[in-house]
C-alpha cells in the first residue's frame, strides 16, 4: 500500500470511524468477557450463587469473592495499563450480572420454575466500583491488589446483606431450627441437595456464632489479594500482541 494514501477522506470521517470501532470493541469485550467470566464463575462458585440456601455465613462469603476476583484483575490489566480506562472491574461485573439475571429469570424460573427470590445472583457491584476507584486513584497495581483486593473481599457480605438478611432469620419447622433460606431449600429439592447439607454441618460453624461471617470475609479478602496479583499478570499475558512466526 502507498504511504501517501489515506484510509479516510477527512478528519471528521477519521473521528467517526474511530468512534465506530469504540462501540465494536466495547461489544466484543463485554460479551466475550461475560461468557468467559460467567462460565468460570458458575463452575467455581456457581452453586453458592444459584441458591439462597447455599448463601451461608461461611463458604459463600469465602468462595464467591475469591473466584470472582480473577477476571476483573485481568481486564483491569488491559484496560487501565494500556488505555487508562478505569472501569475494567465494573465491565466484568456488569457482564456477569447481566448473564446471570437473564439466566435466572428465563431459565431457572422460566424453564425449571424455581422462584426468583430463591435463585437471585450475588451482588459484586460495590466491590467492583471500589476496585476500579482504588486503581484510578493510586495508579498502582500493588495498592490495588492490597487495598482493592482487601475491600473486594470485605465488602461482599455487607453488599449482599440487604437481600440475604431477611432469608437468614431463624424459623422453626417440624421441630427443627433453620433459616428461611434453608426452608426454601427443603421445599425446592435439587439433585445436588444432599451434598451441601453434609458440607455446612462440618466444622465449628455453630460454635463461632456471629463471628463466622466477618472471619470468612477477612480470609476471603486475604486470598483475593493474592488472586489479584496472579490474575493481573495473566491479564498482561492475555493482552499481548505477539505473532507466532513460521519456522
Amino acid at each position: 500500500m502507498s504511504a501517501s494514501q489515506s484510509a479516510v477522506r477527512s478528519r471528521a470521517e477519521a473521528v467517526k470511524v474511530s468512534r465506530m470501532f469504540d462501540w465494536f470493541i466495547l461489544w466484543a469485550i463485554f460479551f466475550v468477557v461475560l461468557g468467559g467470566y460467567h462460565i468460570h464463575y458458575m463452575l467455581t462458585g456457581g452453586d453458592w450463587d444459584f441458591w439462597s440456601d447455599w448463601k451461608d455465613r461461611r463458604l459463600w462469603v469465602t468462595v464467591a469473592p475469591i473466584v470472582a476476583m480473577t477476571f476483573p484483575a485481568a481486564v483491569q490489566a488491559c484496560l487501565w495499563w494500556r488505555y487508562r480506562l478505569p472501569f475494567g472491574a465494573v465491565v466484568c461485573v456488569l457482564g456477569l450480572l447481566l448473564g446471570e439475571w437473564i439466566n435466572r429469570y428465563l431459565n431457572f424460573w422460566g424453564w425449571t420454575y424455581f422462584p426468583v427470590n430463591f435463585v437471585f445472583p450475588s451482588i459484586f457491584m460495590p466491590s467492583a466500583i471500589v476496585l476500579d476507584v482504588v486503581l484510578m486513584m493510586t495508579g498502582s497495581m500493588t495498592a490495588t491488589a492490597v487495598l482493592g483486593g482487601m475491600a473486594w473481599g470485605l465488602l461482599f457480605y455487607p453488599s449482599n446483606w440487604a437481600v440475604i438478611g431477611p432469608l437468614h432469620v431463624p424459623v422453626e419447622y417440624n421441630g427443627m431450627m433453620m433459616t428461611l433460606a434453608d426452608l426454601q431449600g427443603y421445599h425446592y429439592v435439587r439433585t445436588g441437595t444432599p451434598e451441601y447439607i453434609r458440607m455446612v454441618e462440618k466444622g465449628t460453624l455453630r460454635t463461632f456464632g456471629k463471628d463466622v461471617a466477618p472471619v470468612s470475609a477477612f480470609f476471603s479478602a486475604f486470598v483475593s489479594i493474592l488472586i489479584y496479583f496472579l490474575w493481573h499478570f495473566f491479564g498482561r499475558w492475555f493482552s499481548s500482541t505477539d505473532f507466532v512466526k513460521s519456522a
Binding site: 461489544w27 466484543a28 463485554f30 448473564g99 431459565n107 424455581f114 439433585t191
Partner: peptide
Amino acid sequence: LTCYATAIYYGASYFTEQDGTWHQT
C-alpha cells in the same frame, strides 16, 4: 468479531448455566 462475541455469550453464559438448573431438576 461482534458475531463471535454474541455466539460466545449464548454458548458460555446462556446455555451453560441453563444446563445447571436443568440437571439440578
